[in-house]
Amino acid sequence: MRTSNHLIGAVNFLTFLLSIPILAEGIWLSSRANTTDCMRFLQWPLIVIGAALMVVSLAGFAGACYRNTFLMYLYMWAMFFILVALIGFVVFAFAVTDKGSGRPVLNRAYSEYYLGDFSGWLERRVSDESYWVKISSCIRDSKVCGKMGREINGIPETADMFYSRKLSPIQSGCCKPPTDCGFTYVNETIWITGGGLVGGDPDCTRWSNDQELVCYACDSCKAGVLASIKHSWRKVSVINIVVLILLIIFYVVAYAALRNNKRMDNDEPYGETRMTKAQPSWIHL
Rank of each mutant, 00 (worst) to 15 (best):
C204K: 05
Q211Y: 06
G200F: 12
G200H: 08
T179C: 12
F183D: 10
V186W: 11
E188F: 08
V198Y: 11
W233K: 00
A257C: 03
A227C: 01
D203W: 09
R263E: 14
V225Q: 13
N261D: 13
D203V: 14
C204Q: 08
T205Y: 14
V238S: 06
P202G: 10
W191L: 01
V242A: 12
F183M: 05
S220C: 11
W207T: 02
R263S: 12
Q211L: 10
D180K: 03
C204L: 07
E212P: 06
L247Y: 01
R263M: 09
Y216P: 00
L247K: 00
S220G: 15
D219M: 11
L213Y: 13
V242F: 10
A254S: 14
Y216I: 01
R206Y: 12
L246P: 03
N260V: 01
G199S: 06
A223C: 07
G182I: 13
I190C: 01
V253T: 12
L244R: 01
T189H: 07
P202N: 09
L226E: 05
K235P: 00
Q211F: 08
L246F: 15
T179K: 11
I249N: 04
D210F: 08
S228A: 15
L258V: 05
Y185H: 02
A223F: 07
I190N: 08
C221Y: 04
Y185G: 03
V243G: 00
K262N: 11
I190S: 08
T189C: 12
L226S: 02
V243R: 00
I241W: 03
L213N: 13
Y251H: 12
K235T: 04
I192F: 03
V236A: 15
E212G: 15
C215N: 11
H231G: 03
V242G: 02
G200Y: 10
T184V: 08
T189W: 09
V238K: 09
H231K: 14
I241D: 04
V253G: 05
A223P: 05
A256N: 10
D219R: 14
L247R: 00
G196D: 04
V186D: 10
D180P: 01
I239E: 04
Y185K: 00
D203F: 13
G199A: 08
N260L: 04
V186F: 12
V242M: 07
E188I: 03
I249A: 08
V198N: 14
D201V: 11
K230A: 12
H231N: 11
D180Q: 09
F250V: 00
D180A: 09
L247M: 09
Y185F: 15
V243I: 13
I229A: 06
A256C: 12
I229S: 01
